[in-house]
C-alpha cells in the first residue's frame, strides 16, 4: 500500500503535470474551432473528462461501499469516502462549466433538461453522503449509513448516461466540424489526451486523499490509545 502511495508521489505527480501542460497546449493551440459553437466549445475538453472522472469516482464509492458492507473492513469505507469527495469535486466542475457553455449556446445558464437535472441530483446525493458521515454518532455507524447512500446514489449514474435517449433531452453532441459526423482527428487527439490526463490526475488525487483518510484513522487509534493509557 505504502509503495503504491509513493508511486503516486514520485511518478504520477510529474507525469500529470507534463500531461496537463500538453493538454492545455492541444486544447488552445492545436485543436481547431468547432464549426457552429466556435471557441466556447473548447470548454468541453475539460468538461467531459471531469464528468468521466466524477462517474469513475462514484463507481468506486459504489464498489467500496459494497465491499465495506460485505466485510465491515474500514479500509473500504476510507476508500469510498476519498472517492466520494473527489466525485463531488469533479461533478461540481461539470455543473459549473456546463452552464458557462450553455449561456452563449442556448441563451440560458440552466434548463431543467433531463441530463442536467439528473447530474444535479447526483451531486446533491453525494454532498448529502459527505454531510451524513460528519453527523454520525460513531465512525462505524457513519460508514454503514454512508455505504447505503453511496450504493443508492450510484444508481443515478446510468440514469444520467441514458437520460438523453430516454427523455430525448437536448444535451449536445459537441465535437463536430465541417459537414461530417463525429470528431475531427486533431480534436479527437486533444480530447483523448485530456481524458488520459484527467484519469491520471484523478488517480493521483485519490491516492493523496486516501492517504489522508488512513492518517486520520491512525490518529483516531492513537488518541484512543492515549486515552486508555497504552499504545495499541
Amino acid at each position: 500500500m505504502e509503495r503504491a502511495l509513493r508511486f503516486a508521489d514520485t511518478v504520477l505527480f510529474p507525469l500529470v503535470t507534463v500531461l496537463m501542460v500538453a493538454s492545455l497546449y492541444f486544447v488552445f493551440r492545436v485543436a481547431p474551432n468547432e464549426v457552429t459553437m466556435g471557441a466556447v466549445q473548447r470548454i468541453f475538453y475539460f468538461h467531459v473528462p471531469s464528468a468521466w472522472v466524477a462517474f469513475l469516482a462514484f463507481f468506486l464509492v459504489f464498489l467500496a461501499s459494497v465491499l465495506h458492507l460485505a466485510t465491515r473492513r474500514m479500509i473500504w469505507d476510507t476508500l469510498a469516502h476519498a472517492a466520494a469527495e473527489l466525485g463531488v469535486l469533479f461533478c461540481g466542475i461539470v455543473l459549473m462549466t456546463g452552464p458557462i457553455w450553455a449561456r452563449p449556446a442556448w441563451g440560458t445558464w440552466w434548463t431543467w433538461e433531463a441530463r442536467l437535472t439528473t447530474t444535479l441530483v447526483l451531486e446533491l446525493v453525494f454532498v448529502a453522503y459527505l454531510l451524513l458521515r460528519s453527523q454520525a454518532e460513531s465512525p462505524a455507524q457513519g460508514a454503514r449509513l454512508a455505504a447505503v447512500v453511496g450504493i443508492a446514489g450510484f444508481l443515478d449514474v446510468p440514469l444520467i448516461y441514458f437520460s438523453v435517449k430516454i427523455w430525448r433531452g437536448h444535451h449536445p453532441i459537441v465535437f463536430k466540424t465541417g459537414g461530417g459526423e463525429g470528431l475531427e482527428p486533431v480534436m479527437l487527439q486533444a480530447f483523448a489526451l485530456c481524458m488520459v490526463t484527467f484519469t491520471l490526475f484523478f488517480i493521483l488525487l485519490l491516492a493523496l486523499r486516501f492517504r489522508l483518510g488512513l492518517l486520520q484513522e491512525d490518529l483516531a487509534e492513537l488518541r484512543e490509545a492515549a486515552r486508555s493509557g497504552r499504545t495499541t
Binding site: V40, I43, F46, I93, W101
Partner: peptide
Amino acid sequence: SFHYLFWAYTLI
C-alpha cells in the same frame, strides 16, 4: 463567446 471560455477555465 471568448470570455465564457476564459471564465470556465479560470473557474476550473
